[in-house]
Design a protein around this nucleic acid. Structure first.
Length: 282
DNA sequence: AATGCGCATCCGATTACGTCA
DNA sequence: TCTGACGTAATCGGATGCGCA
């Protein structure tokens, strides 16, 4: 199908501001507002261009419009193809709910009732190309343009209308697929990021545990006793040291002067300097 | 001004049918 | 030749907006 390529990522259509139906139904597509972990898809926005010389769709029911249509198409056979479709297109408009277009029954039954009824079941390449060109410019038609296009292509206005409806549906489907793919990539990237962060947390926890175990193996903080009189450090009875003082014999009268303090290996003092090398580095 | 009706158009879902691998 | 997948024209039903009485 030739139009598949036309549904590609470069699709960018704009819409008239005042067309209620398409404003209602064609919502903005998924486009990230800012850079994130996902690369943005090409800016796929469904917009609509209004026809340059077209009147607003809201006035297509007005008397002036009807009068205009009457003057334009009076005496012109707009339906080159099927003569039987005249009753449908007589007013220049068509509706899926109209009597003709809503007739029930299978197509083969509806269309196989005589040689005079020869409705093309598929559009020619030229017709499709022209429709495609028009769709690229504006993906909706007002009645005037629909009639003109139908006349140009030798199709019933209803056929043109249906073609545009189906074309919009295909465009939307394609857009949905693109959006879905974009979200899928976002999800993949976020999952990847999440796994990476979880791994990092595990590593940090393991590092913290190993540090704790290391210092647990060290001797607990020693409680030393200093004589406030001579400022010599007294140690517990065992083992005896030549450079320390036995608090039981030393200044026995001054025991009340003794005060205890702890050696904190992490304290910012000169006393712990030898431990600095053992301190885990961040 | 509010209301109901008819009309036109839209969309989503579905059907019918042709084409092609 | 048969068959299933696919694309597309067409239909159906519901929703919505607009004009008019």
């Amino acid at each position: 199908m030739a139009e598949k390529e036309d549904l590609g990522l470069s699709l960018s259509l704009s819409f008239p501001q005042n067309h209620h139906s398409l404003q209602r139904n064609l919502r903005p597509s998924l486009v990230p507002s800012s850079a994130n972990s996902c690369s943005s898809p090409s800016t796929l926005t469904l917009n609509k261009h209004s026809w340059n010389d077209s009147s607003p769709p809201s006035d297509h029911n007005s008397e002036s419009f009807r009068a205009e249509m009457g003057s334009i198409f009076r005496g012109i056979d707009m339906n080159i193809l099927p003569s039987t479709a005249d009753c449908e297109e007589e007013a220049g408009v068509s509706s899926p709910n109209s009597t003709i277009s809503s007739v029930s029954g299978k197509r083969s039954e509806r269309e196989g009732n005589g040689d005079e009824l020869e409705i093309e079941k598929s559009l020619s390449k030229d017709q499709s190309a022209i429709l495609e060109e028009n769709f690229k410019e504006h993906n909706t038609l007002n009645p005037k343009q629909k009639l003109a296009l139908a006349k140009q292509l030798g199709l019933r206005p209803r056929q043109v209308e249906v073609w545009f409806q189906n074309r919009r549906a295909r465009t939307k489907l394609k857009q949905t697929e693109v959006d879905c793919e974009f979200l899928k990539r976002c999800c993949e990237n976020l999952t990847e990021e999440n796994q990476r962060l979880q791994k990092e947390v595990q590593e940090l926890r393991a590092l913290k545990l190993s540090s704790t175990q290391f210092y647990m193996q060290m001797t607990p903080p020693t409680t030393l006793t200093m004589c406030t009189s001579c400022e010599r450090v007294a140690v517990p009875p065992n083992p005896p040291s030549s450079t320390t003082v036995d608090p039981r014999s030393h200044h026995q009268l001054a025991q009340t002067h003794q005060r205890a303090f702890h050696i904190n290996p992490w304290a910012p003092s000169a006393a712990r300097r030898p431990l600095d090398a053992l301190r885990p580095r961040s």
